[in-house]
Write a protein that binds this DNA or RNA. Sequence first.
DNA 1: ATGAAAGCGCTAACAC
DNA 2: GTGTTAGCGCTTTCAT
Lengths: 377, 377
Amino acid sequence: MRPVTNMTKKRRTRSRPLPGLVTAAQVAERAGVSKMTVSRVVNGSKRVTDETRRAVKTAIKELGFVPSQLARRLTGRRLGVVALLVPDLANPFFTQVIHGCEDVMRDAGFTILLGNSGEAPHREKSFLETVGALQVDGVILGATGDAATAAVQRLQRAGIAVVLIDRSVADVDADLVVGAAVTPAYLLTQHLLGHGHRRIAMVGGSPEASTSRDRIRGYRDALRDHGIEPDERLIMGGAFTREVGKTTGAALLVAPDRPTAIVAANSLLAFGVIDAALDLDLRVAKDLAVVSFDDVEVTAGRPFLTCADQPAEEVGRIAAVRLLKRLNGDESPAETIVLDTQVRIRASCGCDPGGRSTDPSAAFGENPATGSQLAGE
Amino acid sequence: MRPVTNMTKKRRTRSRPLPGLVTAAQVAERAGVSKMTVSRVVNGSKRVTDETRRAVKTAIKELGFVPSQLARRLTGRRLGVVALLVPDLANPFFTQVIHGCEDVMRDAGFTILLGNSGEAPHREKSFLETVGALQVDGVILGATGDAATAAVQRLQRAGIAVVLIDRSVADVDADLVVGAAVTPAYLLTQHLLGHGHRRIAMVGGSPEASTSRDRIRGYRDALRDHGIEPDERLIMGGAFTREVGKTTGAALLVAPDRPTAIVAANSLLAFGVIDAALDLDLRVAKDLAVVSFDDVEVTAGRPFLTCADQPAEEVGRIAAVRLLKRLNGDESPAETIVLDTQVRIRASCGCDPGGRSTDPSAAFGENPATGSQLAGE
DNA sequence: ATGAAAGCGCTAACAC
DNA sequence: GTGTTAGCGCTTTCAT
């Protein structure tokens, strides 16, 4: 190797280019123009001759050139990507939220990168850091709880717009889109009181989640307003999962003075509670009233669960619209948007509005013999 | 320590830096070192004094510096991100696959970016292009079908590793991880034949999907091997959704010579079929046998559906492991890995293994009166 | 209308 | 051990 003067422009490769990557320079060479012109064509600048434009476009097609969004973003442009982190992908509520977000974002030309924290704060933190380091344009966050504070603040400081959904985060100044929680919980509880129940338990979900706290508050308020002092032993916490619903449900139901009704903070918990009731040969609606948040069609058959139905897709849509506004420079103060939550009275609370549309058990061709045989075992 | 010439280094800002972004240069200045040293500390190089390292780390903490993965990737390093695209987030099978992937990828230090194509080829294409332009390190793809060919080939040409799950893609040379399809479908059908059924329909899902085609093949083979020529009118296609299950199920069941048993290509379709049966006052298991792919616990109560249970999480895990191997330079020929699929005989096929653990209807405290009243309406 | 140079934030290679 | 230089692929500014 001999020391040569800088005759040749390109001497050594300092950085490793990705093999096989087609760059604007290659397109430029092929089209006989400069990188700049390629950039102009890609970005639809007017200041290019039709002829040149055609030539460049041809070269782009032939080489299969896709502009590196990385490099693009590095120069201050948008990535065209927003991240959406939810605490539990297996929770149908969030699946619907995702749907709503996707609809809006897709129409706006953004790609959504989904993340699942699985209710684990450290995974949440890791995801938020990753998308921050990726410099996505914005983040929609269904937080695990207040543990997200630092990570969210860092994102905001880095100029990344954040919109919260479903749960608030302490000390974070950001838009928040949620379904109503306190009032529906109140109404649900009140409905059970109307049925004559006096020992009503609450399976409340994760105390970290603001939604959980709000729902428990509504439940408490309703009891107090009807002259019943909430019994703390009847208020259970835990993750928003079917398993937790089952274990806490079981714990409640084996007690000598077991509750005659249970309010579940979400549908997964409700199903777990029902699992537990079954194990104890309790009949839902008759021996144990169950009401819940979130309306989820998971049973084969007809809707059965009396519930507070949050407008999940709407939550996603509105959050997305909000984020788009922020991305377009809206600097108005952060708002909390509370969406109306519909209470749907069905059969699981002990009501029987009549008609066949209330009981999912009918789905399986239950006949009296089998029914009692199985239930009585 | 402050040469005057430095002052003039920065004259104009050509590109717009992201406001609020902390860069390595800032950290360097604060720690009184060069960018390079910061880079070394961040990447854990040995060639740094403990003292310097401490100083830099302090500065990083104080400023809240997070290295831009974008810029990093641009220099040829890894992004630490892989994309996972599934055709339907609402399908519990894929939720479980995601879980499996996440476990493995997280342990390997990668973040997963999820995408949902919703079975729409154009959304699939758009997502693959986006993650390609983002230059993620790898992609795990549950394709919508052969429409993905071009996009996948482009990714591979750009040096991005691709592993397919659940469905093959025409003309793509990549690892594929799937659950067995033909044999389980055969066994499921055979089981129904054993019950004496002769008119067995297939609600087969999307013909675009290789899994769908395989499952239909197993069904056909079983019929033929038992001397029954498949009746094409009994083989229905459509998306893998509950809605499609319901409409096609209804179409099949209103026919004068309706089938007495139905094989559903996945659990969503099975639930739709059950919905349809209910509408027609048919009792599942008794009036209509239903078997299905995928074992999903969505009913409140006990497992009821006779099904072919694919090891969903395992599919995700193995695909992830495979991808990691590729990322680490494994160039061995692409393989197709077929995982064993377990057939679980339960009650919906007409079997009653005995005990209460077979019928979910028991969950709702069915009593004879209510049961017949509702079912008879 | 098109191009050259500079710079985004980072790291590989090469000094010292 | 640490700093300097060049360059990743793109876009902005300024010149032609």
